[in-house]
Design a protein around this nucleic acid. Structure first.
Length: 409
RNA sequence: CGGGAUGUGGUGUAACGGCUAACAUUCUCGCUUUGGGAGCGAGCGACUCCGGGUUCGAAUCCCGGCAUCCCGACCA
C-alpha cells in the first residue's frame, strides 16, 4: 500500500483526554479513532492488526475443533429470563433497546444463552456431541466506567467459543486442549513470555476458572506468579487452602499487575439446564449438555501488545500481527523505490510504501511511530553502498542488502 | 454509581472581569529543500462544550446539564 493513499495521518501530540499509553500511541499513529469513552473506530492500519490477531485466533480454534459462526448482537428478553440474567439488577452492563412495537431487546454482552439456544436446534443425540462453535464479533458492554483506552471498552472485538460436551470427562479433554490453543495464541502474538495461566474464581460449577494474564503495569488485576511453574493465582482466590491444593509455595510467589487477555470457564449444566439443552444418550436417557466458555479480547490484545512492546518512539509490532512487514521509505529516489515496491508487492509481500513528498526526518519519525517490523530506506546513500538499507524496528543497527537479497527474504 | 479534576480553531497550549481571543502544529498556495518531525513568505480554520445567572462588560465569576480523564465501586 502506498502511504500517500492512506487517509490517516500521524500526530505529534496525543489528545489530552487520553492518558493510557495504548490509546495515545494508537491514536497518534492513526490506527484507531476515538468516538467516545470506550468506543474506538478501527482505521485501516488498526484493522489490519485486528484482522491478523483474529486470523491467528481462528487458526488455533480450528486446530482444536472449533467451527466459526456469526452470532447476533440483538438478543431477545425471554431467552435471558430463563437464566435469570435479563434484569439490570443482576447484570448491570446491558445495553437495552426495543423494537417499534415495544418489545425489549438487549445488545449481547456475552453469548452463553444465545449459543445454547441456537444449539438446541442442532443437538439432540450423543452423536451430535461434542461440538465447538465460536464467534469473532463486536461485543457491547454498558460499563459504568470505561477506562484505559482500548483495555476496557463499551464496544470491543472479541472471540468467544462455547464447548458442548456429553459429560465432564469429555469436557475436560477439550478444556485442556483449549489451554494449549490459548498458549499458542499468546506465543504467536508476541506475549508468550509474559502471559500466565492463572487460577481464578470458578463460579458455581468448578473450583477454578482459568485466566490468561499478561504482565503489565497497565493491568487492572493483581496476580501472584510462580516463575518456575509458569502459573499464577489471581489475588481474588489466593488462600492457603488453594496454594496447598495447587502445590504452590507462598514464599516463591511474586505479586504482579496484569491484564486479563483471555479466560476459560467450565460452565457445566448452568446454562443447558435452564434453557433445556438436552441430548439423548446411548441408553435412551435425556441429559443436559456439559458446557464451557472460552473468551479472548481481540482489541484488548492489540492494546496489550502496545502497552508491553512499544517504546518512546512509538509502536513496535511483532511481525505476526504487524499491519505490514516492510515500511519502504523513499528518500528522493522515487523511481527506484516504486520499482522495488512493485517487485515486493507482486511477490505478495506486505509493504507500506512511504511515497509522500515530505522530509526525510518526518518519514523516519513516522516509521518509528507506526512500528512496522522492517524499515527499508532507498536513498542515494543506500544505492551508493550497494542497495537498500534495512533496519529492524526493535534493533539499533542497520545494514545494506541488495535487491536480490530483499526479494529472497 | 460515589469522589476529584478538566472543557478555548483538527491537535497541543496562552489570554488580570475590559482592544478584532494569542502562539505552535496541522491544513492550503508559492518558492526552496531531502539521512531524523527542514526554511522563507502568504492564507484557511473558534458563536471559547450547552443552557441559565451576576455585571456597563464574561473564555474568565456563580448555578445546572453534558462530555472527558483519574480514584473507588463494578467487571464470565
Amino acid at each position: 500500500m502506498k502511504q500517500s493513499k492512506l487517509f490517516t495521518k500521524t500526530r505529534k501530540e496525543a489528545p489530552k483526554d487520553e492518558v493510557s499509553k495504548n490509546a495515545q500511541l494508537l491514536i497518534r499513529a492513526g490506527f484507531v479513532n476515538k468516538e467516545m469513552t470506550g468506543v474506538y473506530s478501527l482505521l485501516p492500519l488498526g484493522l489490519r492488526v485486528v484482522e491478523k490477531i483474529s486470523e491467528i485466533i481462528k487458526e488455533e480454534m480450528n486446530n482444536i475443533g472449533g467451527i466459526q459462526v456469526k452470532s447476533t448482537a440483538l438478543q431477545k428478553q425471554e431467552v435471558w429470563e430463563k437464566t435469570n440474567r435479563w434484569s439490570d439488577d443482576v447484570v448491570d452492563n446491558w445495553f437495552k433497546t426495543e423494537l417499534k412495537n415495544g418489545t425489549s431487546l438487549g445488545l449481547a454482552f456475552t453469548h452463553e444463552e444465545a449459543f445454547s439456544n441456537l444449539m438446541k436446534n442442532f443437538i439432540s443425540s450423543y452423536k451430535d456431541l461434542p461440538v465447538y462453535p465460536y464467534d469473532v464479533r463486536t461485543m457491547f458492554r454498558n460499563e459504568l466506567r470505561g477506562k484505559s483506552g482500548l483495555m476496557r471498552g463499551r464496544e470491543f472485538f472479541w472471540k468467544a467459543l462455547y464447548s458442548f460436551s456429553k459429560d465432564e470427562e469429555e469436557h475436560n479433554v477439550f478444556y485442556e486442549n483449549s489451554k494449549i490453543a490459548y498458549k499458542n495464541v499468546f506465543e504467536r502474538v508476541g506475549l508468550g513470555d509474559i502471559t500466565y495461566l492463572t487460577f481464578a474464581s470458578g463460579g458455581t460449577f468448578s473450583k477454578f476458572s482459568h485466566e490468561f494474564q499478561t504482565i503489565s503495569e497497565a493491568g487492572e488485576d493483581t496476580i501472584y506468579v510462580d516463575e518456575n511453574k509458569k502459573i499464577a493465582v489471581n489475588k481474588e482466590v489466593l488462600t492457603d487452602d488453594i496454594l496447598k491444593e495447587l502445590d504452590l509455595d507462598r514464599e516463591k510467589l511474586v505479586e504482579k499487575k496484569s491484564i486479563e487477555t483471555g479466560n476459560i470457564f467450565t460452565l457445566g449444566h448452568k446454562f443447558s439446564e435452564p434453557l433445556g439443552l438436552l441430548y439423548q444418550d446411548k441408553d435412551g436417557e435425556m441429559k443436559p449438555v456439559f458446557m464451557g466458555s472460552y473468551g479472548m479480547g481481540i482489541t484488548r490484545l492489540m492494546g496489550t501488545v502496545v502497552e508491553v512492546l512499544s517504546d518512546d518512539k512509538g509502536l513496535v509490532w511483532p511481525e505476526s500481527i504487524a499491519p505490514f512487514k516492510f515500511h519502504l521509505l523513499s528518500l528522493g529516489q522515487d523511481e527506484k523505490s516504486e520499482e522495488i515496491y512493485k517487485q515486493l508487492t507482486e511477490k505478495g509481500v506486505e509493504v507500506l510504501f512511504d511515497d509522500r513528498e515530505v522530509s526525510a526526518g518526518e518519514k523516519f519519525a513516522d516509521s518509528d511511530l507506526l512500528g512496522i517490523p522492517y524499515r527499508l530506506v532507498i536513498s542515494q546513500k543506500s544505492l551508493d553502498n550497494g542497495g537498500i538499507e534495512i533496519k529492524k524496528r526493535d534493533e539499533q543497527g542497520s545494514k545494506i542488502i541488495s535487491i536480490e537479497e530483499l526479494l529472497g527474504m
